[in-house]
């Protein structure tokens, strides 16, 4: 549904997106992960026909993003939630949506039904006649999401949909994306949030100017997002060390009586490690799971490769 081949964008001499190649199937939710300035927004803008590419190719539903006639067809079938919500502060929530519904060539009844449907779903229906300028950040974000859906697009581009949202609103938005997934929409999601990506995406790409790795969350977990267990001991002695070595653990580090170790299957491995320490007379103070962060992945994929 979304295909890129050696997609490249330069700003002057600066290459922001470098030979990006990927393929997203219909109905797939793709998480595009990367740090600030990675080029995620730039990629999304190229794919949604907003800015031109420097070289390479990109196709949306078979249409070429750089072809003028195709780009109109693409824009009809995609919905975009840009980085900045870009709502009209001086229009009411309802009029914001109605304006876009018209530009997307929705019929009058379609507009009416969809506006009501999405505003109700996102909890904004009783604010429909309020100026968007008076909305809170989270409400604006929800309204912008409704705007991107007003024409019932097959493909959605969401640029950090949960950025700036409180936990509850984040959850509303995430659940909403999961509902869209059930409706078999193809979703391209930019995010910093690895946890979010793991929860909702079928496929994840880690990107920093270049695509570092791409695969399902399970595939990535196996290869890169290794889970870690941290165990704080009162004291580490030779006996404990010896017991741990016998377990042939991966990437064991000890710092300040704190053991950190990679685990593939924490449910099975953690009890074994704990048993070994306790049998060796070790006193465990805390045991915690360290979930992989985007930073860990970068250490492996960006810095690790330098």
């Amino acid at each position: 549904m979304i295909d890129a081949e050696n997609l490249t964008r330069k700003f002057g001499d600066l290459t922001v997106v470098d030979k990006l190649t990927f393929h997203i199937e219909e109905g797939e939710v793709f998480g595009f992960l990367g740090p600030n300035g990675a080029g995620k927004t730039t990629t999304m803008r190229m794919l949604s026909c907003l800015i031109s590419k420097t070289s390479g190719e990109a196709r949306i539903a078979g249409y070429d993003v750089s072809d003028e006639a195709d780009s109109l067809k693409i824009r009809k079938i995609i919905g975009l939630l840009p980085e900045n919500n870009g709502l009209y502060d001086d229009l009411t929530a309802y009029k914001n949506l109605d304006f876009y519904g018209k530009l997307y060539e929705c019929s009058k009844t379609q507009r009416k039904e969809n506006i009501e449907h999405f505003l109700k779903l996102l909890g904004l229906w009783d604010k429909k006649d309020v100026l968007a300028g008076t909305f809170s950040k989270g409400m604006k974000q929800k309204l912008a999401i409704a705007r991107s859906l007003i024409h019932e697009p097959e493909i959605l581009f969401l640029d950090e949909p949960t950025a700036n949202l409180d936990p509850e609103s984040s959850k509303t938005v995430r659940d909403f994306i999961l509902d869209l997934k059930k409706e078999k929409k193809t979703i391209f999601l930019n995010t910093h949030n690895l946890d979010e990506a793991q929860r909702i995406c079928d496929k994840i790409g880690i990107f920093n100017t270049k695509l570092m790795v791409i695969g399902s969350p399970e595939e990535l977990e196996d290869s890169t997002l290794r889970k870690k267990t941290a165990i704080q001991l009162k004291e580490v002695n030779d006996k404990i060390l010896k017991a741990l070595r016998n377990l042939s653990l991966r990437n064991l580090t000890i710092d300040n009586n704190k053991l950190i170790v990679d685990v593939v299957n924490p449910e099975n491995e953690n009890p074994i490690i704990v048993d070994a320490i306790v049998s060796a007379g070790g006193k465990i103070q805390y045991i915690t799971r360290i979930s992989s962060t985007l930073e860990d992945v970068y250490l492996k994929f960006v810095r690790g490769k330098k």
Binding site: L50, L72, K76, L80, P82, N85, G86, L87, L103, A144
Partner: peptide, 14 residues
Amino acid sequence: IEKSLEPLLATPIT
């Protein structure tokens, strides 16, 4: 200034 150009240009208008 309102950054509304981006969603606007994303609609099928020439």
